[in-house]
């Protein structure tokens, strides 16, 4: 009798663990550094809260020479990357893959795209506009932005956690990583995928609906 009870108990525990782990699997991790902060509750007591890394306020010129800020991505999830129009190495592959996602979520205005140019000298808004038109993605959901070297390089390294360097010895003059960074509606980083790797891009395509479903609850 005792044995039977413990067996059924362990079965029950296994089932609970199994079910709960299934639910965990449906949530994307929150990436980047985090901090613990003491917050004051409504009743005057204090408790410890986790503060996640978020993308700070920004303002850049887009392909239509309009200054855009975080507000453009309010209540949207978006995929951010860093590129330049004359890049002949990884950028075309990244944007070929991103365009595939763009086409797939054509009917979903909640999913947006934000490409920052790191060629602050040449890639003016008009150059970005031409690029967007030629890529065939200039319908407003995909923003191409230009900013000062300082502002773009800083947000890349500190906030999107993507390395970008101006390097005159590189073939096209710049070195950068090809991450596609997935940002949620609370401006937190929920994933980073190598935009040149078909497997990782496929994973990103799988993760987008998971993130979208999360906000529906």
């Amino acid at each position: 009798m005792k044995l039977q009870l413990s067996t059924s108990l362990s079965f029950l525990t296994a089932a609970v663990i199994f079910i709960s782990s299934c639910q965990d699997g449906k949530k994307l991790p929150i990436l980047g550094p985090r901090a613990a902060e003491t917050v004051k509750n409504a009743d005057g007591s204090t408790s410890i809260d986790t503060v996640y890394k978020t993308i700070p306020a920004f303002s850049f010129l887009n392909q239509d020479s309009v200054a855009i800020t975080n507000d453009k991505f309010k209540d949207k999830i978006y995929i951010a990357d860093f590129f330049f129009t004359s890049c002949s190495t990884i950028c075309p592959t990244m944007h070929r893959n991103m365009k595939e996602i763009f086409e797939k979520y054509k009917d979903n205005p909640e999913v947006m795209y934000l490409s920052h140019t790191i060629d602050f000298k040449y890639d003016t808004p008009s150059v970005l506009k031409k690029y967007a038109q030629k890529l065939g993605v200039d319908d407003g959901r995909w923003q191409f932005v230009h900013g000062s070297k300082d502002s773009v390089y800083k947000i890349a390294e500190n906030d999107y956690l993507v390395a970008v360097i101006e390097d005159s010895t590189a073939k096209d003059g710049y070195i950068h990583q090809g991450w596609l960074v997935l940002i949620d509606k609370q401006k937190r980083i929920r994933g980073a995928y190598d935009g040149t790797d078909t497997k990782q891009v496929a994973q990103l395509m799988k993760d987008i609906p998971v993130l979208l479903a999360e906000d529906k609850k």
Binding site: P92, R96, L135
Partner: peptide, 16 residues
């Protein structure tokens, strides 16, 4: 070549 012209030679928009 593949970066711009694609694995199946399909090109990329009107860029390539």
């Amino acid at each position: 070549c593949q970066n711009c012209h694609g694995a199946n030679g399909e090109g990329l928009g009107i860029l390539a």
